[in-house]
Design a binder for these strands. Structure first.
Length: 462
RNA sequence: GGUACUCUGGCAGAACGGUUAUGCGUGGGCCUGCAAAGCCUAUACAAGGGGGUUCGACUCCCUCGGGUACCUCCA
């Protein structure tokens, strides 16, 4: 598989000959997760599911930043502890992302649970004279890492002359960044240099190396993390190990609203909770995968609606396959196979999820065509369904389960309706149809028989 | 101001320099008791402007312009 690598600014081949180790920068747990977080994490979820479907072993680490100024501020405002805040939003995180059908990472390390690792990391940097202690904390000395700027393509001197870097007399160089901040405000930890808490960037360096080794395969996150977060991670980590840090840097584009980045200051944040309630997981996932991961996508009700239309087609396809029992039969195995290959090829070529979805919907349409022509035989449907299921699995899409009782009830209602229809008592028949609609069950009248589908309940549709 | 990215039909969005995909939407049809859904079919002479390279450019180069992101916390 080829992936666009931010560091080399070119496509790099992912080595899948052994276990693939992925580190994704997770969220700072100071508020509800929003649809921008969802996109990044869904992209990596599909990447991971695809590789696993191919039988490749994955070690997938995603951190929680559970100590930072915003969390502490929020704790103060709410007159509670930082831990209460971070615990609350970690719980919310899992509520949201389980709801989005995101597979859990191998591990979700938290900064506060790795203070010892972080301290050891900093000690080594000080030992190497790359970090130094000052009045306010311990700082990383950017000038000691000549390659600083290689990820974000920034030049050190331009950064220095750049307008708005805070003037801090206690730092040797305005570009130096904190790896440890002295503080008396809880939470704090003792360190060889004084009481305080870790800087933001250091946790990812310490935890990724701890869990994945010194040079793992993919390091990812949102585009907005390239600078300074990932740039600083590289500086720290490569100074620490003396060797290359992550092999491939994969960055996911922002979710925008009316062309502007979602942000609290603009007040245009769409929480996952809210969008999930209205649109459900499948439509959100389709939306998040609708463009190339490296580019921004613009959030809009129109686009979600378009994906709702598509999702209904997929649902129908699924139920056509389940109910298939046509006598006729059309040979399409080679087409199905071809679509499957297109699906995989699109993923292999820099994870082109738009083309992946094209292939997926091509399969859906092929299947619906056969059904419309009464050419979907039972055995044949099994073959198509296997491929459809595989794609659904990789994309993380989920047809809602249906219970045996429901199935019984639906079948009985349909039988009754058929009876009424034969007797030309259409009013009665339509009543049953309406009743089924209320149960989110839609009837599809074919020439020879009627099949049903249970539609996902989408609040926004109503 | 610096850096990077981006500008494709009504919308979304792809494509080794050589037939301008695909989906949504829209028109028509099939099916149906009527619907719905689905299916079939039609529909867009689309590439920010201007130059250039080339037999040929959406694709490469130059230039002008618009947009976004980052340069401070941010997925």
């Amino acid at each position: 598989m080829k992936l666009q690598d931010t560091l080399s600014n070119s496509e790099q081949e992912l080595d899948v000959s052994k276990k693939v180790r992925i580190y994704l920068c997770g969220i700072t747990v100071n508020d509800e997760s929003h649809i921008g977080h969802a996109r990044t994490i869904i992209v990596f979820d599909v990447l991971r599911k695809y590789l696993e479907e191919k039988g490749i072993e994955i070690e997938f680490i995603q951190n929680f930043t559970d100590v930072d100024d915003k969390i502490i501020n929020r704790a103060q405002t709410e007159n509670t502890t930082a831990e209460t805040i971070s615990t609350r939003y970690i719980e919310n995180y899992f509520r949201d992302f389980d709801g989005l059908n995101v597979k859990r990472a191998t591990n979700y390390p938290k900064a506060t649970e790795h203070i010892d690792d972080i301290i050891k990391f900093i000690e080594k940097l000080i030992e190497k004279q790359i970090a130094y202690t000052s009045k306010n904390g311990v700082y990383f000395s950017v000038s000691k890492f000549p390659e600083y700027g290689k990820l974000s393509k920034k030049k050190i001197d331009e950064l220095q002359s750049g307008a708005r870097i805070e003037v801090d007399e206690t730092k040797n160089d305005p570009l130096d960044f904190a790896v440890w901040k002295f503080s008396d405000i809880e939470p704090t930890w003792d360190s060889p240099w004084g009481k305080g808490r870790p800087g933001w960037h250091i946790e990812c360096s310490a935890m990724s190396i701890k869990y994945l080794g010194e040079n793992f395969d993919i390091h990812g996150g949102g585009r907005d993390l390239i600078f300074p977060h990932h740039e600083n991670e590289i500086a720290q980590s490569e100074s620490y190990t003396g060797s290359q840090f992550a092999k491939i840097w994969t960055h996911v584009g922002m979710v925008t609203i009316n062309g502007e980045k979602m942000s609290k200051s603009l007040g245009n944040v769409k929480s996952i909770k809210h969008v999930l309630e209205n649109w459900g997981p499948n439509i959100i996932r389709l939306f998040c995968l609708s463009g190339h991961y490296s580019k921004p996508i613009d959030y809009s009700e129109e686009l979600l609606k378009e994906n709702l239309t598509k999702w209904r087609q997929a649902e129908i396809c699924y139920y056509e396959l389940i109910h298939a029992n046509s006598e006729n039969h059309e040979e399409t195995n080679s087409i199905i196979k071809k679509i499957g290959i297109e699906f995989d090829n699109a993923l292999e070529a820099d994870f082109n999820t738009h083309l992946v979805l094209s292939a997926f919907f091509q399969l859906v349409r092929e299947c619906n065509r056969l059904a419309a022509d009464e050419k979907l035989g039972k055995e044949h449907a099994k073959i198509i369904k296997a491929e459809l299921d595989r794609m659904l699995e990789v994309l993380g899409l989920n047809i809602p389960e249906i219970t045996e009782n429901e199935r019984h009830e639906i079948n009985n209602l349909i039988k009754n309706r058929e009876k009424f229809r034969k007797e030309k008592q259409f009013e009665e028949a339509d009543k049953i149809r309406d009743k089924l609609n209320e149960m989110n069950v839609e009837l599809i009248d074919h020439k020879e028989n009627t099949i049903w589908m249970k539609k996902e309940n989408i609040k926004a549709e109503k």
